[in-house]
């Protein structure tokens, strides 16, 4: 278990963790499509033991958005 969102994102999209920042999103990560997007949801939900709602998922445009929603689920995010 990790509390580092960047590490999870990096793992799901098979890129290096240093390439992930708050502005990362489908626009600049090539492998971020609907398929991997749902895998990311699974990984985050398993990791933090939470359940996202569909509006939270469709709202995500960047990594910063993920962190915002995690905070709403009372998950402390390691910046």
């Amino acid at each position: 278990m990790t509390d580092n969102v960047h590490a999870i994102v990096a793992k799901v999209f098979s890129i290096s963790e240093t390439d992930v920042n708050d502005e990362s999103g489908p626009e600049n990560i090539e492998s971020w499509d609907s398929f991997n997007g749902l895998i990311l949801v699974d990984e985050l939900e398993n990791n933090f033991k939470i359940k996202f709602s569909i509006s939270e998922i469709t709202d995500v445009k960047t990594v910063a958005d993920i962190k915002r929603h995690l905070k709403n689920h009372n998950v402390s995010v390691n910046e």
Binding site: P26, E30, W32, D33, S34, F35, I54, I57, T58
Partner: peptide
């Protein structure tokens, strides 16, 4: 699937968010 992140993105994300994901 990469194609649909590159072609008519505003429609493909619409369909993804409001039809496929639900």
């Amino acid at each position: 699937s990469d194609f649909w992140t590159r072609w008519h993105i505003s429609l493909s994300t619409w369909v993804r968010d409001y039809l496929y994901y639900p």
